[in-house]
């Protein structure tokens, strides 16, 4: 089973009396685009939070590339290459778009105190590389013109794209997007669709996605997990899921 990129089994998360996630299992192969769908409050974001170490799962196993990661703090999981976005965009609003991307590269920069104080050639080089990389990704998500603008002043769709770019500068292996299309207009959603497929094709990232926009989900996903009330309902290819009676029932109610 070592070829799995991320594997979670029997993941359970309990908040007091509320069972938010119940016996969820999930497998993601390298290079896949996997979606998680389900009605509001189904526990999708909770699964995300457990996988990325923001919540400590009540029980269950999470393995990333064969290595057990449950119980690790969020920043350590992020360092392994599991990078996420947030449902409500979390940018550093007072910093410029470019700086947002530089902060994300913090780990790879020359952070030596003396090197920075005296601007050693090494330090300049690493800064220049970081800026070049940030510029590349700004170009990629179409924000070059807005590089020097404060992130909080960008339009909503631009903020969404900047958040994805901010993930990408860290060279993630698994990119986890929490409702990336929320609040976008149809044009922007189409662009996002293209961007995500592009990320997989050209940059080799695996994508796990929570989304309500069915067109986007059906379009780009290799596989889909359906969650309802914390419990896994079914999983499969878009076509299988689309025609699954339970899914129709969960979404449209009992007829």
């Amino acid at each position: 089973m070592s070829e799995c990129l991320l594997e979670a089994s029997d993941l359970t998360m309990r908040f007091g009396g509320l069972l938010a996630v119940d016996q969820m299992s999930l497998k993601i192969m390298p290079g896949e685009i996997v979606s998680m769908i389900g009605p509001n409050g189904a526990g999708k974001t909770t699964v995300f939070n457990c996988l990325t170490g923001f919540y400590k799962a009540t029980s269950g196993n999470i393995r990333f590339k064969g290595q057990s990661i449950e119980g690790l703090p969020g920043f350590k999981i992020a360092r392994l290459g599991v990078i996420r976005t947030f449902q409500n965009v979390r940018l550093f609003k007072g910093m410029t778009a470019l700086e947002n991307l530089l902060v994300a590269q913090h780990r790879k920069l020359n952070t030596g105190l003396l090197a920075g104080l005296f601007k050693t050639p090494d330090f300049r080089k690493s800064e220049a590389e970081a800026i070049a990389k940030a510029e590349f990704w700004l170009e990629k998500v179409g924000l070059t013109e807005f590089a020097n603008r404060e992130a909080g002043n960008l339009a909503y769709g631009q903020q969404r794209r900047l958040e994805i770019a901010r993930c990408m500068v860290t060279n993630p292996e698994l990119l986890m997007l929490d409702e990336p299309a929320a609040g976008l207009n149809p044009n922007e959603t189409a662009e996002l669709d293209e961007l995500i497929s592009d990320l997989r094709r050209d940059h080799g990232v695996t994508v796990l996605l929570i989304e309500h926009d069915m067109k986007l989900v059906m379009d780009i996903s290799d596989r889909i997990y359906v969650i309802n009330q914390g419990r896994p309902l079914t999983s499969g290819t878009p076509d299988e899921v689309r025609n699954h009676p339970e899914v129709i029932k969960a979404y449209l109610g009992e007829s």
Binding site: F75, A78, K93, V103, H106, G116, L117
Partner: peptide
């Protein structure tokens, strides 16, 4: 100098949103 160094940027980022910092692999 600190303000223009990665550490200065990280301070500001942390002040703005420490959850986002953690999600990017920065140790708060």
């Amino acid at each position: 100098r600190l303000l223009r160094m990665p550490i200065g940027r990280a301070w500001e980022a942390l002040r703005e949103d420490d959850i986002a910092c953690r999600s990017l692999g920065l140790n708060p």
